[in-house]
């Protein structure tokens, strides 16, 4: 059977690279004695696919993986067993059974949301964000493969929302992670800084979700599947 699992990566694990996270998850699955399916061949490994790659330095509110099991296991039982052995900071929040033919998370996810928690320096955050959204182009130096090349983020930014707390603003941006442009969290931070939000004001950055965007709607990978 195949399970899709939503999990949280706490701030204490923000420095793990993707390979470290894969190892941590595999080890947790073994400690939990989950009846995982193994691949064939000389070097059998757990049929696990961490579909969302969390950038080093960020923690993640809702990340996802798929796993194949050799025998049936109730969804809640899976979550319970895994959580008893997970290291501090790693928590499975829910699991659902999915069809063997369902598309992979990797193929499904095309958008993500990043949250920036900033110290309130003045009352102008809202104004700054509207200025950003009104621009015809949003050019930053690329942080990705084509390093330092100018890159227009505009077509990849779908919406930006602000939640204000007493001392902090939380700016959450929904962006594209593939076509037409892959928007990175550090490029977003550069953009915010261009429009007057100083990097020193940022006290926390995390990924708040991963989505399959269809038109103007953002579905989570859990919603975008039909149960078998």
């Amino acid at each position: 059977m195949r399970l899709r699992v939503e999990y949280r990566v706490g701030p204490e694990l923000r420095f793990l690279a993707n390979l470290d996270m894969i190892h941590a998850m595999e080890r947790a699955l073994r400690r939990a004695r989950i009846p995982y399916a193994l691949s064939e061949g000389f070097n059998p490994h757990i049929r696990l696919s961490l579909g969302t790659v969390l950038p080093v330095g960020l923690w993640g509110e809702r990340e996802y993986f798929d796993i194949e099991l050799a025998t049936e296991l109730a969804e809640e039982e899976f979550v319970k067993r895994l959580n008893t052995v997970c290291p501090q900071g790693l928590t499975a929040t829910r699991a659902i059974a999915i069809k063997p033919t369902s598309p992979s998370i990797m193929g499904l996810v095309n958008a993500a949301s990043y949250a920036f928690k900033a110290v309130k320096a003045d009352a102008k955050t809202r104004e700054r964000i509207s200025t950003i959204t009104e621009q015809p182009e949003l050019v930053v130096a690329s942080r990705g493969k084509k390093k330092n090349r100018p890159k227009d983020l505009k077509p990849g930014i779908f919406k930006i929302e602000i939640k204000s707390e007493a001392q902090f603003d939380i700016i959450e941006a929904w962006v594209s992670t593939g076509e037409p442009v892959n928007v990175r969290f550090d490029e977003l931070a550069d953009l915010l800084s261009q429009f007057g939000l100083a990097p020193q004001q940022l006290v926390d950055v995390w990924r708040s979700g991963n989505y399959c965007r269809v038109g103007n709607k953002f579905y989570t990978p859990m919603e975008q599947v039909k149960s078998p």
């Binding site: 204490e12 420095f15 793990l16 690279a17 470290d20 941590a24 080890r27 080093v56 330095g57 290291p87 501090q88 900071g89």
Partner: peptide, 9 residues
């Protein structure tokens, strides 16, 4: 950075 952050299992 994980060399310096501790908190391992």
């Amino acid at each position: 950075p994980a060399r310096y952050s501790g908190d391992e299992l």
